[in-house]
Design a binder for these strands. Structure first.
Lengths: 194, 194
DNA sequence: GCACGATGTCAACACGCGTTGGCCAACAAG
DNA sequence: CTTGTTGGCCAACGCGTGTTGACATCGTGC
């Protein structure tokens, strides 16, 4: 057994390969979803044999699980006035979707969550842990805060669906700034309540 | 001419079988999506052999195509005042989603459109032919009417996504009337513009 | 009666899938 | 040198898939 020493030399470990597999898997899952993504294709993208994927991740399902890890990177909304929250959320999400083209995490999650119960559960978890609390801190306490947060999330998800998944032409015709201008008031309407 | 006789095995006409296959296919596609739905499973649900499905529909893809035929049954909005349109749309869509449980058409379309380009194209077509014109008739002419219609569709799709596909608990906690009360103003915000 | 088309079953084919296990090359340690 | 570990390839297995074609059954028109 190899022992780690303090003066550890730079070695070509399996970690690099594992990261390569994960990146390839994310890209495939994002483009094709869970079912149509094959272990063989992921392995080919990563430049190794399919059996290596099994070695490092155990099974296709575990590989998928690993690819689902996501951090929405929501900013801290502690001091944000309620009026500015909607525009900020829209801007942040659009930027997140259109930012780094190699960051397929959101695409993986949304595309998979619609047909894969495992991914749907992950989505619910992300909403409960990352989205709902952040929105709740910017709102005065009320019994229907979680419901309003869910409806705001629905709006943001619907935007992503129409623009980045279905690619409705009129939705694509808008610039990010125009989306913010037209869509933020809609978030605000749910935020404020009827 | 074949007569229906009680107690005797009536041989099915081809149309009845075809309709049975289509109903079974819609249910499977709605629950499992395109990839995980197998011809054998559809045939078993319809109580016939898998080769019958091929006989009647040619291929799995053509069966899917047939299952995608959808009529949103949007009411004529000719005389509707603009103020009432959002609530009417929300009510109509929620009713359509929660109405007939055997009518899986919407579920098929939405679930498939996220991973299947064929279904996505169908969705764009439905938006362009059924949704956008109806919304446009209720609005004063403006250059950004299609964009606003697309964003309203995004909101309705997001609602369906959160409530019926992802099943976010807070979104499920709302009654249809509460959804209408909270969500219609959001549609109105997009409809009216900033 | 008899052929015929409609309705349906059955067995098989070819293929791609996830997964397994054996083998190989490099290399560090004893 | 031997031994063990690591990173990797290769061939194969078992299975389920979409799809095909040969065969069975039965009501009905000539």
């Amino acid at each position: 057994m190899t022992e780690n020493e303090t003066g550890e030399r730079a070695r070509r470990t399996g970690e690099a390969t594992k990261a390569g597999i994960l990146a390839a898997a994310r890209a495939r899952f994002a483009r094709q979803g869970y079912e149509r993504t094959t272990i063989r294709a992921v392995a080919a993208d990563a430049g190794i044999d399919a059996s290596m994927v099994m070695r490092y991740f155990g099974s296709k399902e575990q590989l998928f699980e690993a690819a689902l890890t996501i951090d929405l990177q929501l900013p801290d909304l502690g001091g944000i006035p309620q009026q500015e929250l909607p525009a900020l959320l829209v801007r942040h999400f659009v930027a997140r979707w259109e930012g780094d083209p190699t960051d397929d995490a959101l695409l993986v999650l949304l595309r998979s969550a619609v047909t894969n119960e495992q991914a749907a559960a992950r989505m619910r978890d992300i909403f409960a842990r990352q989205v709902a609390p952040v929105i709740a801190t910017a709102l005065p306490p009320a019994p229907d805060v979680p419901q309003r947060a869910a409806l705001m999330s629905a709006q943001l998800l619907g935007l992503a669906l129409a623009r980045y998944l279905l690619r409705l032409p009129p939705a694509l015709a808008l610039t990010p700034a125009e989306v913010e201008r037209l869509y933020a008031p809609a978030l605000a309407a749910v935020l404020a309540g009827p």
